[in-house]
Every structure is written in C-alpha cells, then in structure tokens.
Simulated assay, not measured.
Amino acid sequence: MQLSVVEAFVAVCELGSVRDAAAALHLTQPAVSKRIAALETQLGHDLFDRVGRGIAPTEAGRAFLPHARRLLAEMEDGQRALDSLSQQVSGRLGLALSHHVGLHRMPPVLRRYVRDYPGVDLDIDFLGSEAACDAVARGHMELAVITLPQPPRPDLIQREVWADPMRIFVAHDHPLASTAAPQPRHLADYPALLPEPDTTTYALVADALAAHGVTFRMRLASNYLETLKVLTAVGLGWSALPASIRDPELKPLDMPDLALQRSLGAVYHPGRRLSNAARAMLQALGLD
C-alpha cells in the first residue's frame, strides 16, 4: 500500500473536500481522486459517499481512518528515528503556537532557535490552544506552545514553561474603574469580553467567579487577546487579560480574592519519537 494514497485519504477525511485536500497536498483534484479510487480498489470498500459536490466518509471510511492515521504517524516516527542517528538538527519542525504565546513569549526563543539551527525548516501554524492540542494528537504538528489545558489531556504530555497570572481590566471611564475596593460580585453587573466558552481561559475565569457565587453575562467572545484588549479599552466591558499587559488605555482592578493564573508551555505526543529539531526546541524553551 502506497503511503501517498493513504495520505490523500486522510486529507480528504479531515478537510472534507477533494479540492481542499488537493491544495494541502499540492496536487490536482484528479490526482487526489485517482489516489482515493486506487485505495478503494485495494481495500475492496467504498471509503466515501459522494452526493453532488459533497463528500463524506462511509462507515468503512470511518473505520479505516484511525488505522490510516497511525500508519502515517508510524512512518513519520521511523523517519525521525533515522534522522536522529546523525544527531544533526535539521529538517521540518511542525510547531503550533497560540496567538498570545506566539506574539508575546516566543519571539526571543525563535530568534535564538533560528540563529542556532539554520538547517531546521520551521513550519509554524497559529492556532487556538485547543485546536493546537488536536493537531498534535493527530500528528499534524509535532509540538505546540500554548495555554496548557486544564485539566491536562490524558493523551498528551504537557510541560509548563511560563506561569501567566491574569487580572481583570477595564477602560478608565468604565464604572468599575472608579469603584472603591471592587469585588468579584461587582463583575456580575457589567458585560464580559472573554474567549470562547470552550477555552481554558474562559473556564478559568468562570470557575474562579463561581467560587465567589458570581455569574456573569457575555457581551461577545474572541479568542484573540489583542482584540479583547482593544474592545475593553473602548469601554464595551471588562475582560481577564495577562497581568503582564502594559496598556495606558486599560486599568487593572485590584481584586486580591480573585486568583487567576494560566499555565503556558509545550505539548507533545507521548507515543511518538521527537525529532532532533523538536528536542532542540524544548531545550530552547528551558525544558530538558
């Protein structure tokens, strides 16, 4: 069985279209369709239902997908094992970064890494932390440096690099900015600007406020902290942002009873051999 036909099958399953799979694999659509047809012939099962312009895996396709992913992952692990014999730090490194970590934590790390390991082809993708974890779990990315999920995902190894304390911020003309000794209960009176409810950061804030018996209402959600910072500065609501933010248009509220702290760090798969390039990145992050 040729790996190229398996790769085409997995790409169509995950991207949901032959066109998108062809673009991702740098192939033509007929070439992808030919590979899928060859795999179906070899396996003796139809792997996709084709209705109009849509395509979706059949029951057989869904059953074969995890095996196909493991096959590709094993091949990639084997290549890494061979590459590691030379101790040379080179080749591709698939690295997923959350936007906040990529903008505010990683630049000095990447600057040193690029200088020290010019033979590495860094393939960086900016993803939400949850999507980055999924990309590592599926083998699309070798490493992710993100907001670490809480509770930890059992299918991944996660290692803290930075503690990231957070505070509640408002605009200077927001009513809470002039409130003497603001308390967590006061946040219930005003709309919140936070990441999406399925994120670690949202859960952190919601759990901390729930511990004080506080429920809050959302005005809008965005997973881009830079966006939340701007919307908070114009007075649309309060937000929980990294305490390290220095913005003259924002005022941090002093709420010592409200403990908010994220953990930022690296995530990788426990069952896959790390490449020399990945191990060098962990060392650059201060992780042995």
Rank of each mutant, 00 (worst) to 15 (best):
D155F: 06
R80G: 01
E130Q: 15
Q87I: 04
L110D: 00
I146V: 11
V89C: 08
R112V: 06
D121P: 04
C133A: 06
Q158G: 12
S84N: 03
R53E: 05
D173S: 08
L110T: 04
P66Q: 08
H140P: 09
G78S: 11
Q158K: 02
D77S: 14
A131G: 14
F169V: 14
M166S: 09
D83C: 03
W162H: 08
Q88G: 03
T147K: 02
P182C: 02
E160K: 13
G91S: 08
R138M: 14
G61S: 09
A68K: 09
A171T: 08
R138I: 13
P184A: 01
E130M: 12
A137E: 12
P152H: 10
S98N: 09
A132C: 02
R105Q: 06
V114G: 00
E160M: 13
P165Q: 03
G139E: 04
L148N: 13
I146F: 09
S98R: 00
Y113F: 15
D77E: 14
L72F: 03
R167K: 14
L143N: 04
G52N: 05
P182N: 08
D164S: 15
I157D: 03
L156A: 02
L110M: 05
S129E: 01
H186P: 12
A177D: 00
D134W: 11
L127M: 06
Q87L: 15
E76V: 11
S178Q: 11
A144S: 08
I168H: 07
T179E: 15
F64C: 04
E76A: 13
W162K: 05
C133G: 05
L93K: 01
Y190A: 11
V145A: 02
V89M: 03
G78E: 11
H174A: 07
Y113D: 00
E76K: 05
V145W: 10
I55V: 12
L65V: 02
D189P: 01
P184R: 13
L65P: 07
T147C: 07
L122G: 00
A181C: 11
Y190S: 10
P184M: 07
A68I: 14
P184C: 04
P182I: 08
R159I: 11
L187V: 12
L85N: 05
A137R: 09
R138C: 14
L72V: 11
H172P: 07
V114E: 05
D116I: 09
S178G: 10
A171K: 04
A163H: 12
L110E: 01
D134F: 02
G102L: 05
V101R: 11
H174C: 13
G54M: 00
D155C: 03
R62K: 14
